[in-house]
């Protein structure tokens, strides 16, 4: 069923029209990888899904809730079900790893402190960082920080996870550890929308790859099709450049 439904989505920054007409439906348990050249609107599209950017027109529905037209209070509620992982991690530097993860559920009074901490430890085990529970983010490597950021998003028990180039800020030797966590998540059935330059990951994990250029979805399909036999000329050019 449609977990995320995007209809005629347009987004402009002033004069600049970044998203021109995006239509996309993401099913439950589906893993979507979004690829495309720099500046094509990939981040903007992702950020429209959890209303970090306000769409200029069109609708975005997540779990049947219309994000685009919702009041602030409702958006806060909807966002609890939409995890987001950023390129720059954005961990809270004044909190320990454990506090980073339990912070939102506790602050929003969804869990008691003890429950949240127990859950946080479980999540840390899942991303293989149990021993780092009580250190501060700055004491972690980039790869470790990003894994904590994933755990932090998972602490809200989201239905959908958005990733915006989660490995682009990492040293090459740390990319693998983050991608592995994401692969595990995909296997467990998480609905994921991943903006990435990691074509290997897209090929292996994605159910569907979406190529965006100049504010449009130019081409989409299963990875073996899109990578193996791209039809659109722009897709072919892009893939020639990155592969």
């Amino acid at each position: 069923m449609g977990k995320v439904k995007i209809k005629n989505l347009k987004k402009s920054f002033g004069e600049l029209e970044v998203l021109k007409d995006i239509n996309l439906e993401v099913c439950e348990r589906e893993v979507i990888c979004i690829i495309g050249p720099s500046g094509s609107g990939k981040s903007t599209l992702l950020r429209c899904i959890n209303a970090l950017e306000v769409a200029t027109s069109g609708t975005v529905e997540v779990d049947g809730n219309d994000i685009t037209g919702a009041a602030d209070k409702d958006i806060n509620k909807y966002r609890q079900n939409i995890g987001m992982v950023f390129q720059q991690f954005n961990l809270f530097p004044h909190m320990t790893v454990l506090e980073n993860i339990s912070f939102a559920p506790v602050t929003l009074k969804l869990k008691s402190k003890q429950e949240a901490n127990e859950k946080a430890l479980k999540l840390l085990r899942r991303v293989d960082l149990e021993e780092k529970a009580n250190v501060y983010p700055e004491q972690l490597s980039g790869g470790q920080q990003q894994r904590v950021a994933i755990a932090r998003a998972l602490a809200m028990d989201p239905d959908v996870m958005l990733f915006d180039e989660p490995t682009s800020a990492l040293d090459p030797e740390m990319v693998g550890e983050v991608l592995n966590v994401m692969k595990k998540l995909a296997k467990e059935g998480m609905t994921m929308i991943v903006v990435t330059h990691e074509m290997g990951f897209a090929r292996e994990v994605a159910d569907r790859v979406i190529f965006i250029d100049d504010g449009f979805i130019v081409e989409q399909g299963p990875p073996q099709e899109l990578f193996g036999a791209p039809k659109n000329e722009r897709t072919i050019n892009f893939l020639n450049m990155v592969l």
């Binding site: 959890n50 970090l52 602030d72 209070k73 806060n76 509620k77 909807y78 966002r79 609890q80 939409i82 995890g83 987001m84 950023f86 720059q88 954005n90 961990l91 809270f92 912070f103 939102a104 602050t107 929003l108 950021a149 932090r152 998003a153 809200m156």
Partner: peptide
């Protein structure tokens, strides 16, 4: 403070005030 901090907090569902 880096804008990403506010965005990370909001993306978890926190209202602006919190």
């Amino acid at each position: 403070i880096n804008k990403g901090q506010m965005e990370a907090a909001r993306s978890l569902g926190l209202p602006y005030s919190l």
